[in-house]
Design a protein around this nucleic acid. Structure first.
Lengths: 138, 138
DNA sequence: TTAAACTGTAACATAAATTATTACAGTAAC
DNA sequence: GTTACTGTAATAATTTATGTTACAGTTTAA
């Protein structure tokens, strides 16, 4: 329920791929990544845009170009979550303001959502790409 | 992001309405509830079905029928969350099993999702209808 | 005993969000 | 200058969420 679409899964997948190849000379292409994730290369580039904006990866245009994870980088999943979530807004019902509940519920929910989001972020902060890497099937 | 659609908001709204009317003789009708939430009465009945299955409300058919919150009931939002979430399944990318990351990622994400869901549930357990009721604008 | 007021549910329509696809301008390498 | 990339836009297809209508079945009460 927390992750109701595939965007976060796709972002984590991309980041983990880049992490596994972080020592490589080559930059990973969106075609290659698309083949591992199982989505279209244009989708990969769209998701990578978010990762770039979050400062988690760098890319290079032109021949032999592609994407690389930023060096050093003990990256955790909260950073990836936030890269994904930053633009979106919560939706609320169009409640009846004449009703005591209808007039208050959306503000109450807003607080609650902020709290649950915080919990999720704190939970994801504990999970590093390095530990996911160690848990890959060999 | 945790709550990407209006179902949870609708369920909480319904429960809070029922809570405010818990001392009343009358049963609340789906028409009345629909008017407060701002959705169609059939939608209300669809959501109420989940609440019934979770044992949080009882309903009565026929004239003067409607819905009531179960008596006693120090209900928290985790119960409502679980009423909503129980049927749904997570989705994953159709990853490439020949790739080390593609072959492992979905299992790794599954674990992560279980953990974040648990955090959300624990956070929601702390929020009772009674405290939301107290925070309604008067 | 019949009309009225409900729930429960199905079938279908519409809207919104997500994901896929195609295309191509721009860039860098060789 | 050709090749292999990214970046991005436009648009289509798919999926999910929400809205709407309809009606059978239930209960109440005149």
């Amino acid at each position: 329920m927390v992750f109701s679409n595939l965007e976060f899964a796709t972002l984590v997948h991309i980041m983990l791929l880049l992490y596994t190849e972080k020592e490589s000379e080559d930059w990973l292409t969106s075609d290659y990544i698309a083949g591992s994730v199982g989505v279209n290369a244009a989708v990969v580039r769209r998701e990578i845009k978010k990762l770039k904006q979050a400062g988690l990866v760098v890319s290079k245009e032109g021949k032999n170009g592609g994407v690389k994870i930023i060096p050093d980088s003990e990256i955790d999943l909260a950073k990836i979550y936030l890269a994904n979530v930053s633009d979106k807004e919560e939706k609320y019902n169009n409640t009846n303001p004449k009703c005591a509940v209808g007039g208050s519920i959306n503000e109450l929910l807003e607080e609650i959502y902020q709290q649950t989001d915080l919990e999720v972020i704190q939970s994801l902060q504990k999970i590093k790409l390095s530990s996911m890497y160690k848990n890959l099937k060999k």
